[in-house]
Design a protein around this nucleic acid. Structure first.
Lengths: 190, 190
DNA sequence: GGCTGATATTTGTGATCACATGGGCGTATG
DNA sequence: CATACGCCCATGTGATCACAAATATCAGCC
């Protein structure tokens, strides 16, 4: 999810097991679960690797993010009090810090934490879980993107999200979230 | 997904293995995968059972169905030709037949086939996969619903969906799909 | 030197086993 | 008669093994 592993990276059950000090059996179960969520690809012969996404798949996953996260943000809006907004601003400073440090994995992690913190207020666990599986599928690819483009400014739309939350502006919030989610992935489509 | 198993039904790895003539290992992998998709619940001690959904969870999953399936239908609309509409009408006759036969599992199966046939035209495999995991989570509960209410008429909104497809009426299609998806599950909320 | 073939190693699959834990059920007691 | 206690069996977990298939490696040949 955080882009620690590059797209197309091959993994082996024995290797995973050794890495975590367990036998093949727990490694297999973990791999099967992640494969079920689309986070890993199983070849026809059962080999395991992180997915390499084509443009059409990236666009589809971006559309899914927009669909789900706009709804989650909208549901979180009525419950968003000052304490939440403060936390979001704090996380956003971490995001900015990661940008200046050129830390791709740290950036993705902080960025997703920003979104998750907001969506947790939506009281919609199934919807949040599905959004997280989408993040999981995009993880390796997002790393490849943020590793390429060398940005220096923190995400602009996060400020718009916070502003819309403060103002209780639902249409503005929907637009800001949709823009934030779409923006990064639009650049990825080659 | 088709409601063959009642909500809260307990399952055992050895029992599943025996049922399909395999050992515990493949049964475990299947269970873990289904649990990852939310189709099965693992208790804290690892016991396996089908989920018993509360009202809030049912409403959330219904909202997810509406969100996803309206989008899928909208994407399928431009690609929906006469051959597809004919197939949908044919499947709809099967749905009506299952209603008169009071066959709950057959009804759910035919109903989902109706929706899947339409959404396949959307060329959005990730979105369809997620919609199917939602169906999976609702399977046992839907069976409990359709087993309770004794309906005699086939679903009205299916005809509206087909009519909107024929007319190329996108707003009408979105409304019809949303109504069809929401209607059944609204009755379930006690 | 490049390509084709055989061999060897890696890798996933399914089965079986020992073990710990939790649940179910019967009994005894208040 | 209800409740709490304790025992036993059922159940999930993780490890290991044998096997088959796919992949990688290397030698030989054109």
């Amino acid at each position: 999810m955080h882009g620690d592993i590059a797209p197309g990276q091959a993994l082996t059950l024995r290797g995973i097991g050794k890495e975590f000090g367990v036998s093949m059996t727990p490694a297999r179960e973990a791999v099967r679960r992640l494969a079920a969520e689309g986070a890993l690809t199983l070849s026809s012969s059962g080999r395991v690797s992180t997915p390499e996404l084509g443009n059409d798949r990236i666009e589809e996953l971006a559309a899914l993010r927009a669909l789900l996260e706009v709804e989650l943000a909208s549901r979180a809006l009525p419950r968003a009090h000052m304490a939440l907004i403060d936390r979001l601003q704090s996380i956003n400073m971490t995001v900015a810090e990661m940008v200046t440090k050129r830390d791709a994995v740290g950036y993705i992690r902080a960025n997703l934490e920003f979104h998750r913190t907001l969506y947790l207020r939506a009281q919609a666990p199934a919807m949040l879980a599905i959004a997280e599986t989408v993040w999981l599928q995009l993880g390796p690819t997002m790393r490849a993107l943020y590793g390429r483009l060398r940005r220096t400014e923190p995400p602009h739309y996060h400020k718009l999200i916070i502003a819309a939350l403060k103002a209780g502006d639902e249409p503005g919030l929907r637009l800001a979230v949709r823009s934030d989610v779409t923006q990064g992935l639009r650049l990825l489509v080659s």
